[in-house]
Design a protein around this nucleic acid. Structure first.
Lengths: 217, 217
DNA sequence: CCAGATACCGTCAGAGTGTACGGTATTTGC
DNA sequence: GCAAATACCGTACACTCTGACGGTATCTGG
């Protein structure tokens, strides 16, 4: 006997299925990659009819454009939640490195990477992606600053150090994406934490390679 | 009247068309991306018949695997040529940063990036890619060391600094790939050069952000 | 309560893809 | 020279993907 569904407004119906579709798209990007993220595949994962997908996203391009904002939102939200867990203390700079690292090795990041790389050779995708990524970067910068707080935020070098950290960890994530060598990866992370201390003037350069490297303000 | 072609050995014929196919594949990866790199597209660019492509690479997967080694070879060769031009002098460390940057923003890099990202979700591609990239990294390490020479090579911190540089510049290349902001990009590069000097103990940390930053041994 | 709007469904044709296959031209080994 | 081998060619076919379309269920505004 068919359960009479609770009455939902059109807006609610629309929003939930839309979210379902975009969730499946993200999942598919993550697991199968950009090229294999087809309408049929998304449809199947979402458990919806072909026409439904098309009703919300008339073309594949529109679907992928929709996925962009969705992924950016997820990533910001995820980062915010993780950032809230960072505790104050002498190892805060290092904790933020770990925070950035968790972001740059998270599923959302790799799903977004698929679109990012595809956008290099797809003008439409790029046009939609670039402003969204600007939004992402702006949010991220705020979150970095908010998480670090004083006295870090007032140091003019910190912006640069954050930029270094994000770029470096992005490269490291890419490099270790295919053949994760946990040991080497962690070693680079540990050394970078020490390097940050050196660059902040908290540690002499000769100590770049030794010791535990937990240095605070 | 058909010109009687000079007699070429089978090996020669094979090698040249093979190279032609792989060249077209690389070009296509660069210009159109992984998803749009189809047999037809490669065939058309190479000006060969469909059967010819298939004679050399029975499947699309085989073609892409073939492209991997080809790209790695190109990249090593390209880097070697550029490295030979680096002159000795007080700004050598900085010159190597520029050298790495030219590699990580070169067409071959972006073509390889397409395969790299695709390999994340394609086990066969990954199996072929990982050993080739090991080969690439090994060659690169040699070339870094050879280019830097003494006294850098004997400093145990240099390996780490090279790793930092490569990872950081990889991230920077990715980040600025879609919307190149020359100014911001160059600023990060310049600051990283100074940071290297700080990390090597040649410059005090307080000078991270100021001045031209050409520091030598 | 009911007409119009909107969300969802399922099938279809056209284009494009990858691979199989038989045929022609060129080179090789004897 | 001449068969065998191999490089190159072009068509054919089965498959998948996309976007179009008409049809049904659910909601909304009056």
């Amino acid at each position: 006997m068919p359960v009479p569904r609770s009455r939902r407004t059109q807006a609610e119906r629309r929003a939930t299925t839309r979210a379902r579709i975009l969730g499946s798209t993200a999942e598919c990007l993550l697991e199968r990659g950009y090229a294999a993220t087809t309408i049929s595949e998304v449809q199947e994962r979402a458990g919806l009819a072909r026409g439904t997908i098309q009703h919300h996203f008339p073309t594949r391009a529109a679907l992928l454009v929709g996925a962009i904002s969705h992924l950016v939102d997820s990533r910001i939200e995820r980062f915010r939640a993780e950032a809230a867990l960072v505790e104050d203390g002498p190892g805060k700079m290092q904790a933020v490195v770990d925070l950035v690292w968790r972001d740059l090795t998270s599923p959302v990041f790799f799903a977004a990477l698929e679109l990012w790389v595809a956008a290099r050779t797809d003008a439409d995708l790029r046009a939609a992606l670039v402003p969204e990524e600007k939004r992402l970067f702006a949010s991220m910068r705020e979150l970095y600053a908010g998480t670090l707080g004083e006295p870090y935020t007032s140091d003019p070098r910190v912006d640069t150090l954050v930029e270094f950290t994000v770029d470096l960890l992005t490269g490291l994530s890419l490099a270790t994406m295919l053949a994760p060598d946990g040991g080497a990866r962690d070693a680079v992370l540990a050394r970078w934490k020490r390097a940050l201390a050196v660059l902040a003037g908290l540690l002499p350069a000769v100590e770049l390679l030794d010791g535990p490297g937990t240095i605070g303000p």
